[in-house]
């Protein structure tokens, strides 16, 4: 199927790869169907593009790439929604917020998007975990990588 996106123009995507988010994103209830796009296969950054809204997209990372100690628990009812019987049945994305120059990048670790790989259903999970906030700076190795990549 063809979807419209502001960033990538028209894209042909496999409907099988669409992620359904029945509850939407927190504060953006209409955001219910997404696809995951990647500009280059070895990039740490991906795009979570809303299927029905060309202008709505998020930059996301696998939080474990940048925060190796990150931990989250998926409660029983969410595990059921996502069709998750074992930890391997899901993967996690953290939404990024970027400063104007692409600096001051922060990751939202308190509300990651968990995706059930068997069901392709996703949910933005809220962690009542005091270690995590909506703004964890991507620092250290990650930003050095940005600088060296920018050359």
């Amino acid at each position: 199927m063809i979807i419209e996106t502001v960033r990538f123009g028209e894209l042909e995507i496999d409907p099988e790869t669409i992620l359904e988010m029945p509850e939407g994103l927190v504060g953006i209830d209409k955001a219910k169907r997404f696809c995951l796009l990647q500009e280059s296969s070895d990039s740490a950054f991906k795009w979570l593009q809303m299927v029905d809204e060309p202008g709505l997209a998020f930059v996301v990372i696998n939080p474990y790439d940048f925060f190796p100690d990150y931990e989250l628990e998926v409660c029983e009812s969410d595990a059921e929604l996502l069709g998750m019987e074992a930890p391997e049945d899901a993967f996690v994305l953290a939404l990024l917020t970027l400063g104007p120059e692409g600096r001051e990048i922060t990751a939202n670790l308190v509300a990651p998007v968990v995706i059930g790989t068997k069901t392709r259903r996703a949910k933005q999970v809220i962690l009542e975990d005091e270690r995590y906030t909506t703004k964890h700076p991507l620092v250290g190795d990650a930003l050095q990588a940005t600088d060296s990549a920018a050359g």
């Binding site: 994103l25 953006i28 202008g55 998020f58 990024l96 917020t97 970027l98 692409g102 990549a149």
Partner: peptide, 25 residues
């Protein structure tokens, strides 16, 4: 934060060109 993230992704498109080259640590 979700709304800010969506706005930042719209505006920060150029900055993301270089980010797209970043590899995981």
């Amino acid at each position: 934060e979700n709304i800010r993230a969506a706005e930042a992704a719209r505006k920060g498109a150029e900055a993301l060109e270089k980010l797209s080259k970043v590899k995981p640590i």
